[in-house]
Write a protein that binds this DNA or RNA. Structure first.
Length: 774
DNA sequence: GAGTGAACACGG
DNA sequence: CGTGTTCACTCC
C-alpha cells in the first residue's frame, strides 16, 4: 500500500531552493530540537570538528557533530556563531579538549563531501600561501548557490499506483491536475520540483492530498549533454607540423605523470592544435580536462572551436553566468559528466571526478591573478593541483611570463617550442617609425598615414593599436592650464565624446564636461589621443573604408563583439581600431598592417613590469598581422627609436629580450628572481595608512633583522601609483625576500596585526606575488 | 563581517 | 542623567 502523507507548508519551505539551510536537514536525527541546546555540548555522542567559517576570521572554530551522523571533511554544516548562524565547511577532526564551551552544529547540510581531499588540500595550501582567511578561500570552490546553503538534494515527485489508476480511469476532473499527473507519469523515476515550474505549487499539493503522487528527495542530477560518442559531429583534425607533433608526443608519453610543459609558440604557430590533440588523448582515456583562458580570450568562437573539434559540449565558466548555470557546471564537473571545462581564473577551483590534464592558454596574461581580496594566481593554483593529482599541465604562450621562463631555466618546467607559423605564413616584419620632428595628424605621422593608404589600396586590412579608450585622455584649458580631474582620485578624467561625458577610468566617476573652463571661461580643448578620436581621424583621412572600433566601451553589450568581429572577418570594415582586446587571440587573417600608435606611453610605465607587459602586448598585437598567406608589416610609432630594450625586442625577438629582462631583475633583486609581497593599505584619512605601514615596516625590521640570514628587504611605505582613489588614500609596502620560506615567515608575523585591520578606518591586505604594482 | 557593550561626548 | 556615537573585541 502506498504511503499517504499530508504535506504541511513547512515541508515545502524547507525544500524550497532559497530557504535557509538551518532547517534543511538530511536526516531525522537533526531535527531533534535538543541538539540546538547548550547542554548537548558536554554530553556524550559528539564528534568534534574544526570548521572553516567564511568571514575575516582566519582561524578554525570547533563544533560538535552528533556521533550518529556521518561527518567527513568537505561537508557543509550550519552552525551557531555568536548570536547568529552561518554556514561552514567541516575541515578536520578536532581534539575533544578545548578551553571553549563547544556548541553543536545545527545541521549537516550534505550527506557526502562537496569537496574532495585534493581540493580541500588545495584550498588549505592557497589560504596559507596567499595569506587569506581559510573560510573565505573555501568559498572559491563552491558554486554561489552552494555558498548560500542550497542543498544538493532536491524535492522530486513520483506517481503512486493510485495516480496511475486515476489516469487510466480518467476520473481526474481538473485539466491542470491531469496535465501535471501526466507529466509526472512520463518519468517513473520521478520529476524534480525545478522541472515542474510551469505548474502551480497548489496543483502539486492537491494531487499529493489526493494520494496520487508523493514527494521524495533525490540527488540533484547534473543535466549535462553527453555528445562525446557522436563522433560524426567532430571536425577532422588537421595534420600537425613537425614541431607540433614533437610537442604532442613529448607530453603524450608522460600523460600519467605530473609535469609542467611550457609551450612557447609564436602567434599563429598552432598552439591550439597541440592542446586539442592532447585533450583528445586524455578524453579517450575517459578523463577530464580543464582549460584556463584569460578573461577576454573566452569568446564564443573559442568555445565553438573546441565543441566542433572534440564533438562534445564543454562546460564554460565565466563571470556572466547565472547561479543556476554555475551550479549545473559545478555538478557536471564534479560528476564527470562535463569532460571538458573551459573557464577564466575562478574555474581553477572547480571540482573534478577524474582530471587528467590542465591547459593554461596565454599563461603570461595578468588576468589570471586576482588582485583584490583572495589574490590567487590561477596558473599557480593549477600547477599545484596538477602536481597533487599527478597529471600534466601545459602552459601556452607566444610570450611566456618571466616566471615561467625562469622555471624552465631552473629545469622545473619542460620547454616545447613551435618556431614556425602553421601553414607556412611568414612572420611579420616589425619596424620602428621615428616620429620625432614629424608632422602628426591626430596622432598619426605622415609616414604611417602613407603606409595605411598603401595597404588599404592593396586590398589589405589595417589594424591600429592604442591602449587608451575614450576620445581624449583629458580636457585641457589652453589659456590657464586647467585640466578636468576626478573628484575622488588623483587622476585626470577621460573625455568620451560620443556620450559627451567625463569619466574616471579608475573609480568610474562620471560627470558632464563643463562647456568652458571653470577657471577662466576660455574654451577647452581635448588633449591626448584615445581610440574614439582615432576613429574620427581615420574616418576623415580614409573616407569610404569601413572602420570598426574594439574596446571596452564599444563592447558593453553582449554579442556586440561577435557582430563586430563578423564585420571585420567579412572585410566590410577595412580599418580596425582598438585597445588590449586586439591583443587577445582573435584571428584577423586579412590584416596586412598593424600600427602601434603610441609605444612611448607603455615604454615609460612606472612599475618595473612595464617593459615586460609592453613587450608581450607588442608581440601579441604584431601576431595579428599576416596570419594567412601574406606576410604582415608592423609599424611602431615612437619618440625613442634608439631605445635599447625596444630594439632588442624587435631584432632579437621576445625570448632574447626576456632573458635580458630576467638578468636585470636578478641584478636589481626583483621578482621573479626574488619572492615579493605587497602590503596595501587605504583609508579616508590621508595619513593613517602611511602611519600603519611605517609601523609595520619598523616592526619587520626589528623582528626580522637577522643579518646572518638571507636578506629581507622592506621598501616603503610609498604612496600607491594612484595615491587617492575613490576618495581613499592609498599606500603600499613592498617586501622582498631571497626565498619563499623567508617571505612567508615575515607575512605570517604580520598576521598578528590582524586586529588592526579595521582600526581607524584603515583597510589593509597582503598581495603575494603581486602582478601589477598599482 | 556582525553584534555587543564599554567608554566617551553632549545637551539643557 | 538619558541618549547618541565611536571603538575595540569576541565569535567555537
Amino acid at each position: 500500500m502506498p504511503r499517504s502523507r499530508r504535506y504541511d507548508g513547512g515541508y515545502f519551505e524547507i525544500t524550497a531552493i532559497s530557504s535557509a539551510p538551518v532547517e534543511h536537514v538530511m536526516s531525522e536525527s537533526h531535527r531533534d530540537p535538543s541538539i540546538g541546546t547548550h547542554e548537548a555540548s558536554s554530553g556524550e555522542g559528539m564528534v568534534y570538528w574544526q570548521v572553516a567559517l567564511p568571514g575575516p576570521l582566519q582561524m578554525l572554530f570547533t563544533y560538535g557533530v552528533p556521533a550518529d551522523v556521518s561527518a567527513r571533511a568537505g561537508m557543509r554544516v550550519w552552525v551557531p556563531l555568536g548570536k547568529g548562524q552561518r554556514m561552514g565547511v567541516l575541515w578536520s577532526p578536532a581534539e575533544k579538549e578545548t578551553e571553549w564551551v563547544i556548541k553543536p552544529v545545527l545541521s549537516v547540510l550534505d550527506d557526502e563531501p562537496l569537496l574532495d581531499e585534493e581540493l580541500l588540500a588545495c584550498l588549505g595550501w592557497a589560504a596559507d600561501y596567499y595569506h587569506f582567511p581559510l573560510g573565505e578561500t573555501v568559498l572559491a570552490a563552491l558554486a554561489p548557490s552552494l555558498r548560500q546553503g542550497r542543498s544538493l538534494h532536491e524535492l522530486a515527485w513520483r506517481i503512486l499506483p493510485s495516480g496511475e489508476q486515476a489516469l487510466a480511469d480518467g476520473t481526474l476532473r481538473g485539466a491542470r491536475q491531469r496535465a501535471l499527473l501526466e507529466r509526472i507519469a512520463q518519468t517513473p523515476q520521478g520529476v524534480s520540483e525545478s522541472q515542474l515550474r510551469d505548474f502551480p505549487k497548489a496543483v502539486r499539493l492537491r494531487l499529493a492530498d489526493l494520494g496520487l503522487i508523493e514527494p521524495f528527495e533525490q540527488m540533484m542530477p547534473s543535466t549535462w549533454p553527453v555528445l562525446a560518442e557522436m563522433s560524426g559531429n567532430k571536425l577532422p583534425a588537421p595534420d600537425l607540423n613537425e614541431a607540433q607533433s614533437a610537442a604532442v608526443s613529448a607530453v603524450a608519453a608522460c600523460l600519467e605523470n605530473f609535469g609542467v610543459w611550457l609551450l612557447e609558440g609564436v602567434t599563429g604557430s598552432g598552439k591550439t592544435e597541440v592542446y586539442l590533440n592532447l585533450i583528445s588523448r586524455v578524453l579517450a582515456q575517459g578523463r577530464q580536462v580543464l582549460i584556463l583562458v584569460p578573461e577576454i580570450a573566452l569568446t564564443p568562437q573559442l568555445v565553438t572551436r573546441f565543441t566542433d573539434r572534440l564533438g562534445l559540449v564543454p562546460a564554460v565558466l565565466h563571470s556572466g553566468l547565472n547561479d543556476g548555470d554555475r551550479l549545473n557546471a559545478w555538478l557536471a564537473a564534479r560528476s564527470g559528466d562535463a569532460t571538458v571545462v573551459i573557464g577564466t581564473r575562478s574555474a581553477v577551483f572547480q571540482p573534478f571526478a577524474d582530471l587528467g590534464l590542465i591547459v593554461v592558454d596565454e599563461e603570461h596574461d595578468g588576468s589570471f591573478k586576482q588582485s583584490e581580496g583572495f589574490g590567487y594566481h590561477a596558473r599557480d593554483v593549477a600547477i599545484w593541483r596538477a602536481r597533487r593529482l599527478g597529471v600534466p599541465i601545459m602552459l601556452g604562450s607566444a610570450t611566456p611570463s618571466l616566471e615561467s621562463l625562469r622555471n624552465v631555466s631552473l629545469s622545473r618546467y619542460h620547454l616545447l617550442t613551435l618556431p614556425e607559423r602553421a601553414g607556412g605564413a611568414a612572420m611579420p616584419d616589425i619596424r620602428l617609425l621615428d616620429v620625432r620632428q614629424q608632422r602628426m595628424r591626430g596622432g598619426l605621422s605622415d609616414d604611417l598615414v602613407a603606409a595605411i593608404e598603401t595597404h588599404l589600396l592593396a586590398g589589405g586590412q589595417v589594424m591600429l593599436y592604442l591602449n587608451r579608450r575614450g576620445y581624449a585622455s583629458n580636457l585641457l584649458c589652453h589659456a590657464c592650464g586647467w585640466v578636468a580631474e576626478c573628484a575622488h582620485c588623483d587622476s585626470f578624467m577621460t573625455w568620451h565624446r560620443g556620450v559627451n561625458r567625463l569619466r574616471c577610468h579608475h573609480c568610474g566617476f562620471e560627470r558632464q564636461p563643463p562647456s568652458v573652463c571653470p577657471n577662466c571661461s576660455a574654451t577647452l580643448s581635448p588633449r591626448g589621443l584615445g581610440t574614439e578620436q582615432l576613429e574620427d581621424v581615420l574616418t576623415g583621412l580614409f573616407p569610404g573604408f569601413g572602420i570598426e572600433r574594439l574596446d571596452r566601451d564599444a563592447l558593453s553589450r553582449v554579442g556586440e563583439l561577435d557582430r563586430r568581429l563578423a564585420r571585420i572577418q567579412s572585410s566590410e570594415a577595412r580599418l580596425i581600431v582598438g585597445t588590449q582586446i586586439l591583443v587577445k587571440g582573435h584571428d584577423f587573417p586579412h590584416v596586412s598592417l598593424v600600427a602601434v600608435v603610441d609605444a612611448d606611453q607603455a615604454l615609460f610605465a612606472n612599475d618595473f613590469r612595464g617593459a615586460e607587459r609592453f613587450a608581450q602586448q607588442l608581440i601579441q598585437v604584431a601576431g595579428r598581422a599576416g596570419r594567412a598567406s601574406r606576410a604582415g608589416t608592423v609599424l611602431v610609432q615612437t619618440h625613442q627609436p634608439e631605445h635599447v630594450g625596444l630594439n632588442r625586442l624587435i631584432h632579437a625577438g621576445y625570448a632574447s629580450f626576456a632573458q635580458t629582462l630576467l638578468a636585470e631583475r636578478a641584478e636589481a633583486g626583483l621578482p621573479p628572481v626574488r619572492a615579493a609581497a605587497m602590503i596595501r593599505a587605504d583609508a579616508r584619512d590621508a595619513d593613517a595608512p602611511r602611519e600603519l605601514l611605517t609601523h609595520m615596516a619598523d616592526w619587520l625590521h626589528e623582528h626580522l633583522a637577522d643579518p646572518a640570514d638571507s636578506p629581507l628587504d622592506v621598501w616603503g611605505p610609498v604612496p600607491a601609483p594612484l595615491a587617492r582613489r575613490a576618495g581613499r588614500y592609498r599606500y603600499q609596502l613592498l617586501i622582498l625576500a631571497d626565498d619563499r620560506p623567508r617571505l612567508h615567515a615575515a607575512l605570517s608575523q604580520l598576521e598578528s596585526w590582524q586586529g588592526t585591520r579595521r582600526t581607524k578606518g584603515i583597510r589593509w591586505s597582503i598581495d603575494v606575488d603581486p602582478v601589477d604594482m598599482a
